[in-house]
Design a protein around this nucleic acid. Structure first.
Length: 479
RNA sequence: CGAGGUGUGGCUCAGCUUGGUAGAGCGCUGCGUUCGGGACGCAGAGGUCGUGGGUUCAAAUCCCGUCACCUCGACCA
């Protein structure tokens, strides 16, 4: 990342303490507040506005592909959760239970949903009878609860917001295609909207979702080289359908089990945005989700005509962009810092000198570049600059991903890289979970991220045990 | 769940060793001067010292318990 002069003293430098930097940024940018419930956060208006922009974009992508939104209950009776044994075994340790309603002890305790597969299955059993009822392409936007031991705002909270798509298909092939199609939607969304590059691929047996046959994942790398599981898409086969006795009559009048998928992304993406693009001056938001794309700061507001001109700009620009005019009586310098911390992509300064010359000053958040723009061509300049910022952020993140991706051909190389170079390690793997466990234990937490789709081979043998290799795997520490 | 740390105006903390009128900076409110990179002056508001018990004439300070939060490890979108 290009070195910039540090303008804000309230934020710990990333190189000094990345975790502290992260906390400072979310506080100074007013994204969240802590609440009185352990591990739960208040998402403040500025943070929630980012989520709303994410929702709007993703929701349109889902609907474009024929998905419909629904809402399921937030409680799951214990007996329902127990239906699919791998699933319950995976989630039971982190489930919150409701045992009492009013003053009455419940006859069966209710789980607060950690994910809604079983609720969808229960419903699908009632509405799927014929191949004509398929596919069912449902999605819901909701909150889920997972009782986490250690929490961090956005990255891991006890309650979080997400979307979960749950689909049922006539054939295995249809379901498999859906699984990969939605993974692609996530990949495109990360690139086109969040300006975040990522490795995509398949999770190993050890890392896959509880109850799934295959799990696919998108794994962006944070600025410090640590991975974040950014979204997952699962192929379930007909395992849940059998457990829930969901059947339909096929084209040959034969009973069949439908094939199922689920896929989700969460508010964790906001954490990814912060840790991918942010710098020592605070948040840097990708323009397509920034709640405010352009902030107008009048300079010498008390002087004749300044505020009027600023208002004029505001009225005309707000037709095309998300614009804010800050006419509070803080000093201009204070405002500059404020909107830098909040990551607003473009700042416009308008003062008496500019008005004289029919221009304003346009400053980019990502590289602090300052240019004078004539008011006639302002709208075009902003539009172009927002695209440039998006592309610049993506390029910078891609460079970071490449610079911090290493290869290891044997175990010594692997351990050395894991110890000395934060980032991803590409290494061959024999397919044995024992090697994953060994690596995790001996490196202090390096896990397999995924098996990428376009695997190249960098060696014939497993980098851990030396037996014949089956796959290339990306490895890394994760949040 | 294991190991460490912290609880004092809204925030960051000092005060505790050696018990005796509860402090500072920032923020907040009002007025005035400022305004192109976190301006300044004056006046003001605001604290059951996390919580329960104990010792004492007297506890933010000493003793015992308890709760919450933070950091680091084992589990996870």
């Amino acid at each position: 990342m290009a070195q910039q002069k540090k303008m804000v003293e309230d934020i710990t430098s990333m190189d000094v303490d990345f975790a502290k930097w992260y906390t400072d940024v979310i506080k100074k940018a007013e994204l969240v507040d802590y609440s009185s419930v352990k591990g739960c956060m208040v998402i403040r208006p500025y943070g929630y506005a980012i989520w709303e922009n994410i929702q709007k974009d993703l929701d349109a992508r889902f609907k474009e592909l024929g998905h419909e939104n629904v809402y399921m209950p937030m409680f799951i009776p214990e007996s329902l959760l127990q239906r699919e044994k791998d699933h319950v075994a995976g989630f039971a340790p982190e489930v919150a239970w409701v045992t009492q309603g009013g003053n009455e002890q419940l006859s069966e305790r209710l789980c607060v949903r950690p994910t809604s597969e079983v609720l969808f299955c229960e419903h699908y059993k009632n509405i799927i009878h014929s191949y004509r009822d398929l596919p069912k392409l449902y999605n819901q936007w909701c909150n889920v609860v997972r009782w986490e031991k250690t929490t961090r705002p956005f990255l891991r909270t006890s309650e979080f917001l997400w979307q979960e798509g749950h689909t049922m298909h006539e054939t295995e092939q249809d379901a498999r295609e859906e699984t990969l199609r939605m993974l692609k939607v996530y990949e495109n969304f990360y690139r086109e909207t969040l300006a975040i590059p990522a490795i995509v691929g398949q999770k190993t047996e050890k890392e896959k979702f509880a109850g799934a046959i295959e799990t696919y994942t998108i794994e962006p790398m944070m600025h410090n080289g640590v991975a974040l599981q950014g979204g997952t898409s699962h192929y379930f086969g007909d395992g849940f359908a059998k457990a829930f006795d969901i059947t339909f009559t096929d084209r040959n009048n034969k009973p069949q089990f439908p094939h199922q998928t689920s896929w989700g992304v969460s508010t964790r993406m906001i954490g990814a945005i912060i840790m991918t693009h942010g710098d020592d001056n605070g948040l840097v938001l990708p323009p397509r989700v920034a709640p405010t794309q352009v902030v107008i700061i009048p300079v010498a507001m008390h002087k004749e005509g300044v505020l009027e001109k600023a208002n004029e700009l505001f009225s005309s620009l707000k037709k095309s962009f998300r614009v804010k005019l800050d006419d509070s009586d803080n000093s201009p310098g204070w405002k500059f810092s404020e909107y830098e911390m909040k990551g607003v992509p473009i700042r416009l300064e308008i003062g008496p000198k500019d008005i004289e010359n029919n221009q304003c000053v346009l400053v980019r958040r990502d590289n602090n570049e300052k240019i004078f723009v004539s008011l006639e061509s302002l709208e075009q300049s902003i539009s172009d600059t927002l695209d440039e910022v998006h592309n610049g952020l993506y390029a910078r993140a891609l460079q970071n991903l490449k610079e911090k991706t290493f290869e290891a051909r044997n175990y010594d190389e692997f351990l050395d890289t894991a110890k000395n170079h934060p980032g991803f390690i590409k290494a061959m793997w024999c397919g044995d979970a024992q090697c994953e466990t060994k690596i995790k234990d001996e490196t202090g937490g390096v896990k397999s991220r995924c098996i990428p789709f376009d695997e190249d081979s960098i060696s014939e043998v497993c980098a851990c045990c030396g037996k014949p290799a089956k796959h290339l795997v990306y490895w890394g520490k994760q949040y």
